[in-house]
Write a protein that binds this DNA or RNA. Structure first.
Lengths: 214, 214
DNA sequence: TATTTTGGAGAATATCAAGTTTCCTAATGT
DNA sequence: ACATTAGGAAACTTGATATTCTCCAAAATA
């Protein structure tokens, strides 16, 4: 009889959806609100309304606003990891390889969503230091490490001359994204288009490799 | 007799200091609080207390918290302009010149205060878009323009080969500061030391000019 | 039909902080 | 002394909003 318990429906009204699913809907809605209005200016009423859920349900599934914030951001941290297939990279020469990595990196970090979340994490890093740490580790350090690995391999193969691939990777990232990212974060420009990203990746790769001395 | 009016003290208790001075003290205190706790978490009581002033006086000199915020940040925007003496630059070769600019730029933008204010402006750019615009124009664009001017001159003198000095200046800035600045903003590292800044400037200048091809 | 459980709408409560006001003391001219 | 202005301490008002609670309809089983 116990075997049946899992399939047999219990007495009262059944759940509209499993809690996990509702939680996900809530997290999506919350992220959208937080990204649009920031933490302080986002109300739980607004989140509930956008999620199409009552506050009662909201608070059944989420303990506090702070937890909701962390959950809604943490949900997407993983999606910020840059990983370029090494098999493909192996087929490209050094310049094309770097260009490829930068292009992918730019697409990732210069997307409107990514920029909004970065600004959010930055803005609330005082209130949520552990979230900032998670973000830094999962998104920034991880991506940085992947780039460093590529540069190190290229150096070992003799394709590059580098004192410190780790530092060089940081410079490469900064060249590629700082300016457009910050302009967008400050609301002074929209996120760059795909072709702008591509052009910038090309220019960066060339500058990084050849410099600009005559 | 009207001539005397300006020197003659009026009837009651005199002001402890001129209003302008008190305003300045308040702005300083406010900036410190905002930088430490962010806009939302900073209370007017705390600002008054730190300024050594009562809330009555505070509100006599400042209309609202929002105005206080704008004033306290705007006060310092001008101090973020990078300006390197062109006469000195003229004496240096291209590599030393770029290194010099980057060093100065790093000192400016990687100071704890600067980083804190940038984070603040970034965090509140939704609530205060015009402040963000002012900051962008006065600090970022102006500095960028100065760098671009130098690169353009060097290119015209034949010391550099550049398609677009404007874009190149953005890349140079990103190389120099993005990584350490963001780590500090996220609370993952302290602001770099003077010698770290110097070393980074040297490495950037070399990479920018010579690239890293064997 | 009676019983149960889910969930919505939103009223109620609690808390917190911005902005005002009151009351009191200090410092100065007359 | 007394009138008058400055300014501090703290109470008060008000508006948000996070969190809880009440009431009720919906959807299922027995």
């Amino acid at each position: 009889m116990n075997v049946m318990d899992s399939t047999r429906r219990p007495r009262g009204r059944p759940q509209a959806r499993p809690d996990a699913e509702t939680r996900h809907v809530i997290a999506e809605a919350a992220r959208a609100e937080f990204m649009a209005n920031g933490y302080a200016s986002t109300g739980m009423d607004a989140v509930a309304k956008r999620a199409g859920v009552s506050k009662k349900t909201l608070y059944r599934l989420v303990p506090t606003k702070a937890a909701l914030f962390k959950a809604s951001v943490a949900d997407r941290i993983d999606s910020f990891l840059l990983a370029v297939d090494p098999d493909i990279l192996a087929l490209l020469d050094i310049e094309a390889g770097i260009e490829r990595i930068l292009h992918e990196f730019g697409r990732l970090t210069l997307a409107v969503d990514t920029i909004a979340i970065q600004r959010l994490v930055l803005a609330e890093s005082d209130r949520f230091p552990d979230l900032a740490t998670d973000f830094y580790a999962a998104a920034i350090v991880a991506t940085h490490t992947n780039m460093t690995r590529y540069l190190t391999r290229m150096r070992d193969e003799g394709a590059l001359v580098l004192d410190d691939p780790h530092v060089a990777a940081g410079m490469l990232r900064g060249m590629m994204i700082m300016e457009p990212q910050r302009a967008a974060m400050l609301g002074q420009r929209g996120a760059p288009t795909e072709s702008e990203i591509a052009a910038r990746a090309t220019a960066c790769a060339r500058l990084f490799l050849h410099g600009c001395r005559p």
